[in-house]
Simulated assay, not measured.
Amino acid sequence: MTEARTSCINPRCNRTYKQEHEGQEVICGKCFRSLPDAVRTNHRRYWREYRKWDRRIKRTRDELKILHMRVIRDRFGTMIDCHWDAEIKPYFLSPEKPEGLDAFLEEVGL
């Protein structure tokens, strides 16, 4: 029996993880640490806020407060998804070309 595996989003990385959800994307710790500091800081901040609101929802019993807090938590979830698609995936899937002759010739059209 083979279990489904999900690979790191970095195509040059060979790490795989057990697949928990269909269409899941993961990044390994080594590749995450290779991201620029600003990108890592923002991503961690979004996740910290998401988990904070999730804990608050679990502690609260008032239904109106729970509805309001879910809206806030879902907003941070959307921010995480947008940050993943706009900052993290493009960093690995379409890296910037280094300055050099090949990049110049391609830019000129030769």
Rank of each mutant, 00 (worst) to 15 (best):
A4H: 00
A4P: 00
A4K: 01
A4L: 03
R5F: 08
T6C: 04
S7I: 02
S7Y: 07
I9S: 00
N10T: 03
P11D: 12
R12N: 10
C13P: 06
C13E: 12
N14L: 07
N14M: 06
K18C: 04
K18G: 01
Q19N: 07
Q19A: 13
Q19L: 08
E20T: 13
E20G: 14
E20C: 14
E20Y: 12
H21L: 07
H21F: 12
E22V: 09
E22K: 02
E22T: 09
E22P: 01
G23L: 11
G23M: 11
E25G: 11
E25M: 12
I27L: 06
I27Q: 00
C28K: 01
C28M: 06
G29M: 04
K30S: 15
K30F: 14
K30T: 15
C31I: 09
C31D: 15
R33L: 13
L35E: 02
P36D: 14
D37N: 14
A38Y: 13
A38W: 13
A38M: 12
A38L: 13
V39F: 09
R40W: 15
N42H: 09
R44I: 14
R44E: 15
R45W: 03
R45N: 11
R45A: 11
Y46T: 04
Y46V: 08
W47H: 08
W47Q: 06
W47S: 07
R48P: 05
R48L: 10
E49L: 10
E49I: 04
Y50I: 05
Y50R: 00
Y50N: 01
R51S: 11
K52E: 11
W53G: 05
W53A: 08
R56N: 12
I57P: 00
I57K: 01
T60G: 11
D62Q: 14
D62K: 06
E63R: 11
K65D: 15
K65G: 15
I66S: 11
I66H: 06
I66R: 06
I66K: 09
I66D: 12
L67N: 09
H68G: 09
H68V: 11
H68T: 13
M69E: 12
M69P: 02
M69N: 09
R70D: 09
R70G: 10
V71I: 14
V71R: 01
I72E: 02
I72H: 00
I72L: 05
R73I: 01
D74G: 05
D74I: 02
F76K: 00
F76I: 02
G77A: 06
G77C: 04
T78W: 11
M79P: 00
D81C: 12
D81S: 13
C82K: 01
C82F: 07
H83P: 03
W84Y: 04
W84C: 03
D85I: 01
D85E: 09
A86F: 04
A86N: 10
A86H: 02
